[in-house]
């Protein structure tokens, strides 16, 4: 995994779920109204690139990461947890912007994605350790499980680096 000192980033494309155990870097590129939803356990992280709050048919069976209502249970499952044991997790939410502004027929999908995810996490008593959501700009991010460092990129701005070890309530994983 480590190539010339740089860890490969596991990127979750639209509707996908990616999991890293132990060390690893998880990320999403170009989140507009989509929300990168990362659940963090001291020894693992699971990330879904959520596109819509809920499915209109059985599509969630095909691609659970695509919808908020199916992504959260799928992430728990990936981490080997049940709703009863989920409260030990911490969540990171990034995205949910309205890239096209002042739309008459706006569906407010970004906002509704974030609302739905926040409600689902609350029901499972998973606290949100960090969120950068809403607004009008798309975001890319990478989260390093080893260092608990989060880098967010927005077009036309220098990357923002956040150290989340404190917010995640635990020491970074010793490697």
């Amino acid at each position: 995994m480590a190539v010339a000192g740089k860890t490969e980033v596991l990127l979750a494309g639209m509707g996908e779920i990616k999991v890293a155990r132990g060390a690893g870097v998880l990320g999403c590129i170009g989140l507009g109204s989509c929300v990168g939803t990362l659940l963090y356990d001291p020894h693992a992280g699971a990330l879904a690139h959520v596109m819509l709050p809920e499915p209109h048919d059985d599509d969630a069976l095909r691609m659970p990461g695509k919808y908020a209502v199916s992504a959260v249970p799928a992430l728990l499952k990936e981490l080997g947890l049940t709703p009863a044991t989920a409260s030990r997790l911490r969540a990171i939410l990034i995205g949910g912007a309205e890239v096209f502004q002042n739309r008459e027929s706006t569906l407010r999908i970004g906002e509704r994605n974030v609302e739905t995810l926040s409600r689902l996490l609350k029901e499972l008593r998973i606290s949100i350790a960090f969120s950068d959501t809403g607004g009008h700009r798309g975001r890319s991010f990478e989260f390093d499980l080893t260092t608990a460092e989060l880098v967010i990129r927005v077009v036309g701005q220098p990357p923002q680096v956040h150290s989340l070890s404190r917010a995640l309530g635990r020491m970074p994983i010793a490697v």
């Binding site: 109204s33 989509c34 890239v99 096209f100």
Partner: peptide, 15 residues
């Protein structure tokens, strides 16, 4: 909209 290509395309697609 003015944004990174992937954010703009994905938002368009999701809508």
């Amino acid at each position: 909209a003015a944004d990174m290509a992937a954010a703009l395309m994905s938002s368009l697609m999701v809508e």
